[in-house]
Simulated scan of single mutants.
Amino acid sequence: MSVKINVAKELGIKKAIEVEPTNKVIRDTWKIQKTQVKMKIKQASRADSEDAIEEMLDLMLATQDETISYVTDTLRLTSAQAKRIDDITFNETVDLANKISAEILGIKTVEATEEEVGLEA
Rank of each mutant, 00 (worst) to 15 (best):
S69K: 07
W30T: 15
L61I: 13
T78V: 05
T89G: 07
A97V: 01
I68A: 07
E50V: 10
T113D: 05
K24A: 09
Q64D: 14
E115P: 08
A52I: 06
M39P: 04
D87H: 10
E10I: 07
V19A: 06
K108A: 10
E55V: 07
T89P: 04
G106N: 03
E20T: 09
Q81C: 04
T35Y: 10
V71C: 02
A97I: 01
K24G: 10
A16K: 11
V7T: 03
K42V: 01
S69N: 12
T74C: 02
E92S: 06
S45Y: 08
E116D: 07
D48P: 06
A44H: 00
A16W: 12
M60V: 13
A62K: 12
E103A: 11
L57N: 15
E120G: 13
T63A: 12
G118Q: 01
R84D: 02
V37S: 14
S45I: 08
E116P: 05
L75C: 02
D48A: 13
E103N: 15
K83P: 07
R76N: 11
A16D: 11
D95F: 12
Q64H: 14
E92W: 09
T35D: 10
D51C: 12
I41R: 03
D87N: 15
A62E: 13
A8I: 12
D87R: 10
V110M: 11
A62L: 14
A82C: 03
K15S: 12
T35L: 09
W30S: 14
S49P: 04
Q64M: 11
I17F: 02
D73W: 01
G12A: 06
T74G: 00
L77F: 00
L75K: 00
M56G: 07
D58G: 13
K38D: 08
A121I: 13
V25M: 05
I68D: 05
K99Q: 07
L119V: 06
I5R: 03
T109A: 09
A80V: 15
L77V: 00
N91C: 09
L119C: 07
A80I: 15
Y70H: 03
T89C: 04
E66K: 03
A52L: 04
A52Y: 04
T35Q: 13
A62W: 12
E111C: 13
S49Q: 07
I85Y: 00
K14W: 13
I26P: 04
N91Q: 14
A62G: 15
S101N: 06
I68N: 05
Q81D: 05
S79V: 06
M1F: 11
